[in-house]
Nucleic acid binder design. Sequence first.
RNA 1: GGAGAGGUGGCUGAGUGGUCGAAAGCACCGGAUUGCUAAUUCGGCGUAGGGUUCAUUUCCUACCGCAGGUUCGAAUCCUGUCCUCUCCGCCA
Length: 424
Amino acid sequence: MLDRKFVLENADLVKANCFHRGAHADIERFVELERIRKTKLNEAEELNRQANATSGKMGAATPEQRESLKEEGRKLRERKDQVQSEHDALDKEILAILSRAPNMTHPAAPIGSDDQANLEVARGKTAIPVFDFQPKDHLELGKLHDMIDFESGARVAGAGFYFLKNDAVLLELALQQFAVQMLVKHGFVPVSTPDVANTETLHGIGFIPRGPETQIYSIENTDLNLVATAEITLGGMYSGQVLDAEKLPLKLVGISHCFRTEAGAAGRASKGLYRVHQFTKIEMFAFTLPDQSDAIHEELRQLECSIFDQLEVAYRVVDTATGDLGGPAYRKYDLEAWMPGRGTGGEWGEVTSTSNCTDYQARRLNIRYRTKNEKGTNLVHTLNGTAIAISRAIIAIMENHQMADGRIRVPKALQPWMGKEIIG
RNA sequence: GGAGAGGUGGCUGAGUGGUCGAAAGCACCGGAUUGCUAAUUCGGCGUAGGGUUCAUUUCCUACCGCAGGUUCGAAUCCUGUCCUCUCCGCCA
């Protein structure tokens, strides 16, 4: 959520930002309603003050005076309640508008309506592989080595679910170890999070569960939802808390399962593990001071690059265009790995992304920091970044490191955790 | 799942209808003082929103887990809810 005062004072900027990001938030109406709301607020506070003053006189009053004071107080409270409810109705509408307004955008982010406008800003160390044979996709390879079982997944849980087996399981565990160990060395606190979260927490992060187009599975008869990413639980971990400025930046690396309905994604080109209802993810999350967040965002991006460099997979980094940014993001980088089995002759496929959400999530989650010897508190900035989304990383590794005989080379960085150099 | 106890400011902890935004202690900040790694003493010390001011100041409102209710008036009474602790049951 944006800051009301900021929106009020920068209505034109906010309107332009909404336009670039393809969001429909009626900022003019917001400005008008907010102006009325403030007068209502003042009115209600004044009536309340008068009512408090009336009650205050009660102690020194004679019995006869008490009766008239009671009456006066009752009337004042009634009027206050009336004005207050008018205020609350306005506030509700204001919040509805505000929640439709996305975060402001980094001035350097490319402007454009969709992912066509995303800007490639870097390439990884590894070159796109050239095969002197017809490469297989991860489904064929998975069948060859008995690694992925979609049929059983469908039998047990429906389409979009799967079992990993044999070396795929070792690979999944190796990827987790590799990423977590590396990030712990970089000062991240390892966290294993709940796989469910309440609706309020989802809202704070920017997800809308229980709507018609929601990506979120909700659990019947409860306020709980299966998380779509550990970002939800890691961000929610400190909701309502005031952190010490000296302890920032606070960097976490979370391990969680991610559940996504993929509603509306039917028909979008994808096969196999690329778009599934459940996967495991190692997620980075950071709480920072406002002036640290740009630097930490670069750090998260560098870490993502380092991970895929070590996995020896070709990738490109794109700076996400305004129209393709999620609501909370101020700036977002995606890593797209080369996937030889995608399309005809290989395509880029998103494997990680990292966002700087500035204070947009922190405002709704009410996460603040206090600076020693300074009065008051301020909102932290939050950032998230995928370290490894296991399912997509597995695609990249299997397809890029396959050999002519179908065996798959295990990248050096994973060999200690995998316990072998070759799959097959 | 059953029974009981409890949730108050950074911490400990008073406070059962008005003078309580809340005693006291600790911690912290500022001053004074004493020549000995500290004691004593005085003062200050929550958060958010709003009004006012060039600004400092100051004023108002809200907040005693959360949400409602009773009342002229609620930390205090009532209802619901969440959480914590203890005991019992069950269990990986």
